[in-house]
Design a protein around this nucleic acid. Sequence first.
DNA 1: AATGAATGAGCCTTCATTCAT
DNA 2: AATGAATGAAGGCTCATTCAT
Lengths: 201, 201, 201, 201
Amino acid sequence: MPPIPELEVIRKAQILEAALKTISASGYANVTMDDICRAAGLSKGGLAHYYRSKNELFIAVFKEFFERIFQRSKQTMALYENPIDKLLSFDWLYDRNDPDVNVGYPVLFDCMSLAVREKEYRSLFHDWFENWVSLLKDAIDDGLKKGIFRNLDSESTARAISAVYQGIATRWYLDSASHPTEWAVESFKKAIKGLLLPNNI
Amino acid sequence: MPPIPELEVIRKAQILEAALKTISASGYANVTMDDICRAAGLSKGGLAHYYRSKNELFIAVFKEFFERIFQRSKQTMALYENPIDKLLSFDWLYDRNDPDVNVGYPVLFDCMSLAVREKEYRSLFHDWFENWVSLLKDAIDDGLKKGIFRNLDSESTARAISAVYQGIATRWYLDSASHPTEWAVESFKKAIKGLLLPNNI
Amino acid sequence: MPPIPELEVIRKAQILEAALKTISASGYANVTMDDICRAAGLSKGGLAHYYRSKNELFIAVFKEFFERIFQRSKQTMALYENPIDKLLSFDWLYDRNDPDVNVGYPVLFDCMSLAVREKEYRSLFHDWFENWVSLLKDAIDDGLKKGIFRNLDSESTARAISAVYQGIATRWYLDSASHPTEWAVESFKKAIKGLLLPNNI
Amino acid sequence: MPPIPELEVIRKAQILEAALKTISASGYANVTMDDICRAAGLSKGGLAHYYRSKNELFIAVFKEFFERIFQRSKQTMALYENPIDKLLSFDWLYDRNDPDVNVGYPVLFDCMSLAVREKEYRSLFHDWFENWVSLLKDAIDDGLKKGIFRNLDSESTARAISAVYQGIATRWYLDSASHPTEWAVESFKKAIKGLLLPNNI
DNA sequence: AATGAATGAGCCTTCATTCAT
DNA sequence: AATGAATGAAGGCTCATTCAT
């Protein structure tokens, strides 16, 4: 009886998805392995078979999540030609009904809070940031080549755009009554135009 | 007729300070009441005398912290005359050796992660945001009156500046190797100038 | 400044009364010294001045309570001439609105539960029982002398009457929906008449 | 597919028995979960697996206890033919060496004390009372049919007998020096005969 | 591969008691 | 006489992890 080779892949995906949802709902500090088992439809021992410890599981969850978000953003960007349009293509990230948003944001905050004190999580963030930066940098370099943007350092600007986006999105998520989507979209547009386009400051 | 009338005030301050440091060091998810008691030089029961539960204490810690940071920022701003200078006056917030920074940032991330799921913490953030916004708005309105800035909505711009600052600071704090202080300062400058000054976009 | 000699008496009475009410409301197992202090309008230290420990206070409370109930019963009995009337004179003990009832019964159950395991409380009960028995015995002896009762051992019968009363009252108190007052009064009457009056069994 | 399908039943029985003994020995107010764990030969977590909280366990303990006592009484009664004999068949309840007595009585007093303030316990008593009453009522109805008893309301008399029994047993248990077994047995006999048999009162 | 019973350390909270004032 | 701050032991409960089956 040969083992089913894909079983591990299937189980891990099933666990990761259940864990992400559960962590998002309860928060890192409160979620229990039992919660996750229940959501994954597996027993404690079953889960332990694939992820040896809570920490190992959490790292895997966050890694997978970051990768997925990044891939999706990459694909969205690829739909546009114009560099500016590419940089403004993350509209879906301001859609509360989007599953990656309503599940993802809470997890992101948890992960930040963990990253402050634990290297492993910090490194997850670092990798994610670098992925974003290289994506944005490509678009900026293209804009530079086409002469649309003013003279600037593309990497450092890419970092700034990424950071600005996150700052605005955070406000939008934590206090949406005072920071509605229109405000977020407009503020982001203005800020990155200021960073990119020629002006007479 | 208590012997030392200020005792409660003293003790509460002592507890709050110890708690802030301890939470900052270990993180909300890991800190124990015992840790805090030890740091405060009080027994469990002694602490309970002033703060009845962990949650009550934490809310008090965060509230006090937000207030202090805000007051300090206010005072810093007041040192400058020029509206732009006022808006750029938060340099100390990029100083890793500043106690409010190395103790404060970790706590801030914890609080965000809590705010995602708990109203009480969310409301703490809301109040803090509003304080900042009104502070920044005053400076912007002054700039508008003086004709330094382009035509803009001062409140919405104040929100944007505050958000942009936080986004950049987050990167700087979580991944300072790739986001050094110079990058943070420069990026902030560029972004808010883009938001404020007349340009020909 | 001579101390006020009656102060101790006043304070102790005040504490005992507050303690009785508080114990009755929360139960021995749950009541705290703080509860009692609050009810007595005294501080912890103030109370400790008069009763050194929780146990000391509780014993005093129960002792006082038993004594008061007994005195009241004695006075009630004294109102009647006829021996049978005397023995049936405890009607007030079936009045839920009577303070000695609605405060007293709960405390009585607590005390029983304590008496099972602790000699001190058992001895309190013993004394109370003996008081009752001697009271009832006097009435029975009077009935015997008057030839109203059949030939019987007055002490042992006094114990039986007392026990029967308590059994019926317990049912009445714990499950009054199924054991209404009329049932209690009637059952008591029938049972003691069976114990006392001549019959042809 | 648990390896031992009856394991839960076995464990629960083991826990319930250990808990009953431990509660009986220390009293509801003093017994700790640790005591019970030790007696049951289980760890804290192990016990929690079967009974989620102290209260849940206690309710189960009392319920099981009441049921067992009732079943035993039922069986004892069934050994007799004559209605009066049936009603007098509870001799074992006056045997201090009987495990159901020396373990059971203390628990009964605890339960009463709890029942005063908590509905859940009160309802346990109510059910127990009703069981007893229906048992006694059957015997009384039989006696009525056979013409042995005087004209009476069988249910209300059943309640009275049950209450009288409990009152006498309480005295016997709490103060056996003054209320010996012979007194208890005799008093019970006299009282219920007075309640049942024709007399010329 | 999967189950879930069992462990036991750890946590928050409660509370009788003590004691300086 | 009276206060109430402070102690610290103890209790109930949670939960990641282990392991026999």
